[in-house]
Computed example of a mutant assay.
Amino acid sequence: MVGTRPKINTDLASIPLPRRPLDPSDQVRRWYENELGWPVVPAAPGTPLTLRVGLRFDVLDVPTEAGRAALRHLAPDSPVAVQGDRMRLLMAAGSAEEVPGVLDWLEWGALPLDLTALGEGDLMEAPLPPERRPVTAVRPLAVLGSPALVRHLAAGPVSAGPGPAAAAVRCPVDAGPGGAVRRPGLPGQCGVRSLPLDRSGAVQGAAVWLRPPEPGGEVDASLPTLSALGGGGGAPDLVRVLGTVATHCHRLGLRRACVQPSACP
């Protein structure tokens, strides 16, 4: 018995169009909302996503040098972001309201300090998730300090000793072309994430994670909080963080003032 050949539909209008690729900003939004449970503000096309501050965390926005000095007071998994010459230290939700009182108690309240506390109702640019960072080369001098430290990093693994540099770096590196330092492909194991080599980098000017939040982890428990003072818990102490940050902000202010010839003898 000979079967009949099925009729082929030649109507092009009935053929479904190919599915459009997922928008990169939508992928970032899904990472924050699905993996971390952080609310994201919808962004217009071509503009960076922003995170709502004050619900899951508050933010202490400080100069990078001041923030780097405070890293030793944070837990290894405390999220920290950088953008340009600013560092964003994530604090426990509600901490922004405590910052002025703590600075007064530390006798820093009367001085102008280059720091800002972001709380409920504020927004923070959403740093790119670590796996979506297009640039792998780094410039350690912009974040970590001296040329001697760069040479030490290129020499081999870094031990977890005291101080902000050891608190920030816990992974081996190797030297790339032109003296650049490259990470040897250890996603999720390194405390310091890659930064662009120069201003032409793909993520230059964008917010990036120095210490990214780990999906599925207890991010809230790793944030500095005022309740950690004398509480014996595992959360970092906000008072120590603010004391260190305020001290370095004041030093930076004095250094900038001395740049002016009339300001120093």
Rank of each mutant, 00 (worst) to 15 (best):
P213L: 07
V239Y: 04
P21K: 01
G185F: 07
P265S: 12
G176E: 05
A166C: 13
V28Q: 15
P63C: 01
V245K: 03
V208G: 05
P164W: 15
P184C: 02
P177E: 15
A148N: 13
L60V: 05
D26C: 01
R88Y: 15
R29D: 02
G188S: 06
E218H: 10
L17T: 10
A202R: 15
P140Q: 10
D77K: 13
V259M: 10
L115K: 04
L123T: 15
R182K: 07
R29S: 14
P157V: 04
A235V: 02
A13Y: 09
V53K: 03
M91L: 15
P16N: 09
P196I: 00
G216R: 06
T64E: 01
E107T: 10
S159H: 08
A221T: 09
L89Q: 04
C249K: 12
P100D: 05
R182F: 08
G176D: 10
R251M: 11
L17N: 03
Q83N: 06
P177S: 13
A228I: 05
R133W: 08
H152V: 09
S95V: 06
D237C: 11
Q27A: 15
A235T: 03
R52P: 00
G191V: 01
G233P: 04
P187R: 06
G94K: 10
G178A: 08
V219Q: 08
L141M: 05
A117R: 04
I15Q: 13
P213M: 05
V99N: 05
D198S: 15
G94V: 03
L238T: 01
S194M: 05
L113S: 02
P76F: 02
S78Y: 06
E107M: 10
G185I: 11
A154N: 00
L60I: 04
G101K: 14
P196K: 00
D77I: 10
P79V: 00
G188H: 03
G67L: 12
P162F: 06
P21M: 00
V192F: 12
L226E: 09
V150R: 15
A148W: 09
L111D: 12
P129G: 08
L74S: 02
L113K: 01
G94P: 09
R139K: 10
D58P: 06
A168E: 07
C249G: 10
D26N: 03
L186Y: 04
R86Q: 14
D61N: 05
V41N: 02
V219Y: 03
G3H: 08
V135Q: 09
R88M: 14
P196V: 03
T47A: 15
R68P: 00
A110F: 11
L149T: 14
G231Q: 12
L242Q: 07
G67N: 11
G253S: 14
T50Y: 05
A202G: 12
G217L: 04
L113I: 01
G176W: 03
P18G: 00
R182H: 13
P112D: 06
I8D: 06
